[in-house]
């Protein structure tokens, strides 16, 4: 009990004093996951919108694939990206393994299906109606699609935030492709695993608290957005 208590106190001290080790880890975590979710948004929103505007019957096969990928275990995603990026793999020449770029790729791979799937579901609810309204007012295809995206912004933002909270908290994929190298590819989740094993509970608890805070903030935003979306 006292170990937890002392660990907690020390963890708070580390956080309040902006401990450089802790800061490096948190910033890398955020950089990797934010970059990943931005890329996943660029990929996922257009695809999800397109699929959402098609009749459900016609996208049945895609639906199954996307929903499977949405629930993919991070370690499996890590393994796949590892095999692709490893020296013998198809993209081995790029030498990306054990770099933050590899971690970003793995997280894009994890987050894109979530963004695609949730965008698709959100658009399917009313997208057809919105598209027709836009067209009936003289919108061409591009403007009509943009209007659908704009009108479905709550659902899309929800999709993006859900994707972010999934990748920022995942450990399996970044561990495999990043390698948890100190100061280079060590992020919050992999650091917690390592520090706990080493018995360095202060840093582990400190990172755990920050991760929880991020999760709290992200979910509060999500909750507010969904409330706003329902109202309309």
């Amino acid at each position: 009990m006292s170990r937890l208590y002392e660990g907690l106190l020390e963890a708070l001290r580390l956080i309040i004093s902006f401990d450089p080790d802790l800061l490096t880890i948190v910033l890398l975590s955020l950089r990797v996951s934010i970059t990943a979710i931005l890329l996943a948004t660029l990929i996922g929103v257009p695809i999800g919108t397109l699929l959402g505007l098609k009749e459900e019957k016609k996208t049945g096969f895609f639906n199954k694939i996307i929903f499977t990928f949405m629930g993919m275990p991070p370690v499996v995603a890590g393994l796949i990206i590892f095999l692709i990026l490893s020296r013998q793999g198809p993209l081995g020449v790029l030498g990306l393994l054990y770099t933050p770029s590899a971690m970003i790729i793995a997280q894009v791979f994890l987050a894109s299906p979530i963004v695609i799937g949730l965008t698709m579901v959100g658009i399917r609810a009313k997208g057809g109606e919105i598209e027709e309204t836009a067209r009936s007012l003289g919108a061409g295809s591009a403007l009509a699609a943009w209007t659908v995206v704009k009108e479905s912004r709550y659902a899309i933002l929800g999709a993006v935030i859900t994707g972010f909270s999934r990748v920022v908290a995942e450990v399996g994929a970044v561990m495999i492709v990043g390698g948890n190298i100190e100061g280079h590819t060590r992020v919050m989740t992999t650091a917690i695993v390592l520090e706990t094993r080493k018995g360095n509970f202060e840093l582990a608890i400190g990172l755990g608290i920050i991760l929880l805070m991020i999760s709290f903030i992200v979910n509060s935003v999500l909750y507010t957005i969904q409330k706003g979306g329902k109202k309309n």
């Binding site: 919105i130 027709e132 009936s136 007012l137 009108e151 912004r153």
Partner: peptide, 30 residues
């Protein structure tokens, strides 16, 4: 040809935007 017509649906849908921007939509599209 479509731009010579307008359809007000049985179940109308206004955009989640201001009244002003809703009315301006077709004008902006053109």
């Amino acid at each position: 040809l479509q731009r010579n017509m307008a359809l007000v649906f049985q179940k109308t849908l206004l955009f989640k935007d201001t009244v002003w921007n809703n009315i301006a939509y077709g004008l902006k599209a053109r």
